Simulated assay, not measured.
Amino acid sequence: MLLWLTLTILWSTTCWADQMYGNGGGTYFSSSIDNKNDISGIRVSISPIGIIRSIQLRYGSAWSEIYGVSGGHAQEFILQPDEYIIGLVGSHRVYLRYLVVYTNLRRQFSFGTNSGRSFIVYPSDPSKVLTGVFGQTQLLGITGIGFKWDYPVAEPQEPTPPSTTQNTKASP
């Protein structure tokens, strides 16, 4: 009885912290979180028939491993200093087909072609930003994708105020 209760609680929808978008199925992947750097870029590879094959994140100046399958035409979007991904829109059929990233600096970049069922994703707390991805992949590409949200590692830099010291000449 206790085992049944435990399994019921673990598999209930309230236990899933993050949602995956798409049909799913296949091999699971999950990006590692970089505790020293925020995401500074995203690279997506798309097949000739419009399937998103893989996704790669850039933390600081280093690219993560490739999540998905190799091949396809890669496109990348590099973030500016103090720029964070705060929302995404996408679509899928059997495979992920479209992904648009939105940033706090009101920039956006799209990968692929909108086709199939659409989804919109943003964090529950507006102070959180994209920190990672997870999902599933099969032979041709990504079948499902989810997004990890957390607070930025680096606090946004405030502009340095101009110096208020004055140069004065000493009198003779």
Rank of each mutant, 00 (worst) to 15 (best):
residue 100 V to E: 14
residue 100 V to P: 03
residue 100 V to F: 08
residue 100 V to A: 13
residue 101 V to S: 00
residue 102 Y to D: 09
residue 102 Y to C: 09
residue 102 Y to K: 08
residue 103 T to W: 07
residue 103 T to C: 06
residue 103 T to M: 13
residue 104 N to W: 06
residue 106 R to A: 15
residue 106 R to K: 14
residue 106 R to G: 12
residue 106 R to M: 12
residue 108 Q to P: 06
residue 108 Q to R: 12
residue 109 F to N: 08
residue 109 F to A: 11
residue 110 S to Y: 04
residue 110 S to R: 06
residue 110 S to L: 10
residue 110 S to V: 08
residue 111 F to W: 02
residue 111 F to L: 08
residue 112 G to I: 02
residue 112 G to F: 00
residue 113 T to P: 06
residue 113 T to L: 14
residue 114 N to C: 11
residue 115 S to M: 15
residue 116 G to K: 02
residue 116 G to F: 02
residue 117 R to Q: 11
residue 117 R to F: 10
residue 117 R to D: 13
residue 119 F to C: 08
residue 120 I to G: 12
residue 120 I to C: 13
residue 121 V to Y: 02
residue 121 V to Q: 07
residue 121 V to L: 06
residue 121 V to F: 01
residue 121 V to H: 09
residue 122 Y to L: 14
residue 122 Y to T: 08
residue 123 P to G: 06
residue 123 P to W: 07
residue 124 S to G: 15
residue 124 S to T: 13
residue 125 D to R: 06
residue 125 D to E: 12
residue 125 D to S: 14
residue 125 D to G: 15
residue 125 D to H: 05
residue 125 D to F: 02
residue 125 D to L: 11
residue 126 P to V: 07
residue 127 S to Y: 06
residue 128 K to T: 09
residue 128 K to G: 07
residue 129 V to N: 01
residue 129 V to C: 05
residue 129 V to E: 00
residue 130 L to R: 03
residue 131 T to F: 03
residue 131 T to R: 03
residue 131 T to I: 09
residue 133 V to T: 01
residue 133 V to Y: 03
residue 133 V to F: 03
residue 133 V to C: 04
residue 133 V to E: 02
residue 134 F to R: 05
residue 134 F to D: 01
residue 134 F to T: 06
residue 135 G to P: 03
residue 135 G to F: 00
residue 135 G to R: 02
residue 135 G to I: 00
residue 136 Q to I: 04
residue 136 Q to S: 05
residue 136 Q to R: 08
residue 137 T to D: 07
residue 138 Q to G: 07
residue 139 L to I: 11
residue 139 L to G: 05
residue 139 L to D: 11
residue 140 L to T: 07
residue 140 L to N: 10
residue 142 I to Y: 05
residue 142 I to A: 04
residue 142 I to Q: 01
residue 142 I to L: 09
residue 142 I to G: 02
residue 143 T to K: 01
residue 143 T to H: 05
residue 144 G to F: 07
residue 144 G to C: 06
residue 146 G to W: 01
residue 146 G to M: 03
residue 147 F to G: 01
residue 147 F to T: 02
residue 147 F to A: 00
residue 149 W to M: 03
residue 149 W to N: 00
residue 149 W to Q: 01
residue 150 D to F: 04
residue 150 D to C: 00
residue 151 Y to A: 04
residue 151 Y to C: 02
residue 153 V to P: 03
residue 153 V to W: 01
residue 154 A to S: 10
residue 157 Q to L: 08
residue 158 E to W: 09
residue 158 E to I: 10
residue 159 P to I: 05
residue 159 P to H: 04
residue 159 P to E: 05
residue 160 T to Q: 14
residue 160 T to R: 11
residue 160 T to D: 12
residue 161 P to I: 05
residue 161 P to D: 05
residue 161 P to K: 04
residue 165 T to F: 13
residue 165 T to E: 13
residue 166 Q to I: 13
residue 166 Q to N: 11
residue 166 Q to G: 09
residue 166 Q to P: 07
residue 166 Q to E: 10
residue 167 N to Q: 13
residue 167 N to L: 15
residue 168 T to Q: 14
residue 168 T to L: 15
residue 169 K to C: 14
residue 169 K to I: 14
residue 170 A to C: 15
residue 171 S to Q: 11
